[in-house]
Design a protein around this nucleic acid. Structure first.
Lengths: 141, 141
DNA sequence: TAATAGTCTATAAAAATTGTAGATTTTATA
DNA sequence: TATAAAATCTACAATTTTTATAGACTATTA
């Protein structure tokens, strides 16, 4: 399961993507609109900024804004940043690899299955971006 | 990531599958061989028994044994039992569904992506069984 | 220079995971 | 039939992770 942190991050990113031309948006506004604890959201937005996805401006008229195009922010990037590994076992994680003490990697069959799961998951999460999860435009009747 | 509980369960199942013809195996033996806390393992084996995957016998000469054929124990079954949902969001979980408070299911685009991830993951985990993760037979030279 | 708004460090609270204790029940067998 | 063996059950404890908060600090604007 994705953590709340990741889900909050995605919600905030959607909010900012929808207002990309409106200049800096207040943390407070996002936290109110999306019902996310403001202090918690601060940390999340900061991480997204440090990762180069968001920009920020301090002081009056400040706030956060998307500095990438929505189609350039992959879901896997956000998930890894806030949630950590995508893989189901540390020993098959590409970005957070750790040897597992219980399996011999050369022969462990579970590892092979989990590597397949990872690959199929990545196939999807690497190609889908923020743009793909923006709400569909309303069509008037 | 799979929990230790699930990983311990899989290890224990492998151990028992390899000894399916040897009658009941002691918890103590599995815990020693696989380096798993005995008391913790007790709980796990009990869950597997209640789920109808293992059988047990009390008293002298007792222990646990596999009551299904390894090819009939899917990985998804074990994972769901010990770990819970396979899906990355509660609102796309087939077995542990919960409405999410932050998305409108009809239009939420993230939900669609996560449903795809779930489907691809299930494609693999539903077809792979305990038999598939047993160690390969040694081939003499 | 006052008000605004993000940044930083640290901590606290809550939840989930992992692990333990000890009494109880069942079974085999001496 | 008494004894030892081994799973079962209930409850709790410790640890780790996740989620949330506090408050001082810095930068910016007007």
């Amino acid at each position: 399961m994705l953590s709340k942190k990741t889900r909050y991050a995605l919600q905030a990113l959607i909010y900012l993507a929808e207002r990309q031309d409106q200049g800096p948006i207040l943390i407070h506004e996002i936290s109110t609109e999306k019902q996310i604890s403001k202090k918690f959201l601060e940390n999340i937005l900061l991480e997204l900024r440090k990762a180069g996805i968001l920009g920020s401006k301090k002081g009056k008229g400040g706030g956060y804004y998307l500095i990438k195009q929505p189609e350039d922010v992959t879901l896997v990037r956000v998930i890894r940043l806030l949630d950590g590994p995508v893989a189901l076992l540390p020993c098959v994680s590409l970005n957070y690899y750790e040897k597992c003490d219980d399996c011999d990697e050369a022969t462990c069959q579970l590892r092979k299955v989990m590597a397949e799961v990872r690959d199929e998951t990545l196939k999807i999460l690497r190609t889908r971006t923020l743009k793909d999860i923006l709400p569909p435009k309303e069509v008037s009747s």
